[in-house]
Design a binder for these strands. Structure first.
Lengths: 119, 119
DNA sequence: TCGACATATCAGCTCCTGATGATATATATC
DNA sequence: GATATATATCATCAGGAGCTGATATGTCGA
């Protein structure tokens, strides 16, 4: 954890908020999960449909869906043998759109960033 | 990297966009970097001022600032022995605000997310 | 009940991430 | 030139993240 002095004291609401924000961003900080969220922007999909739309392996997609569910970004609804996932909030689409706009204006050099290499 | 079939072919603009978005989110996916960005919302600060505002160690703050610079989220301006950092785009503040709103509505359980533990 | 299909979970592996302490480099002042 | 301060870089470490292949579990239809 950060060595921020605030964290040495009892965690303030602000510190907790930052930690939660970091977690949410971490949920988004993976190409596979972003691909899943993009696929879900058009409507609910089953796991198999998500696998087909993203090219992910089935266990990999399932793992990422669990992660996204636990972060509250998606929710699964079992219907027989299928589980249909959907975005929990339309603002998630807004968030992705805003980041797209930011990338056009500022983070042109993200691709050259050595810390986060897209292998 | 993701085994997405699109990536096996020549990367499309879409795939590259997702990879860039993931990188930008990864830049934001750390409490220390978020604390830095929050501090900079009020105006440009030197490295020492950022250290004071966040409680981070100097090398740690410097590393994170380099990361944020390379992602295009902040820019440093040397003035004598000081380097003043600022946000490169006001929409970064909007992004943080939107995530704050999302957290109020959906990701209430982020704190319980086992994949991303704030140690 | 059995077989097929859909989904979730697991073990193991590799690579990445974020921190620290030490230190190098740059700038300003005397 | 020497010293102090500010900042950047490095080596090292511990822990986390993301993937695969195997497999367990649940549902549906015959």
């Amino acid at each position: 954890m950060s060595s921020a002095t605030e964290l040495l004291a009892a965690p303030t609401a602000k510190v907790l908020a930052v930690a939660q924000q970091a977690k949410l961003f971490r949920g988004l900080a993976d190409p596979s999960r972003l691909a899943i969220l993009e696929a879900l922007r058009l409507g609910a999909l089953s796991v198999s449909e998500i696998v087909a739309a993203t090219g992910l392996s089935q266990p990999n997609a399932s793992n990422h869906l669990r992660c996204l569910s636990e972060c509250g970004l998606v929710a699964g609804e079992p219907r027989g043998r299928f589980v249909y996932y959907r975005l929990t909030d339309p603002r998630i689409g807004e968030l992705l759109a805003l980041v797209g706009e930011l990338l056009e204006g500022t983070a042109r050099n993200v691709d050259s960033c050595e810390n986060y290499r897209a292998d």
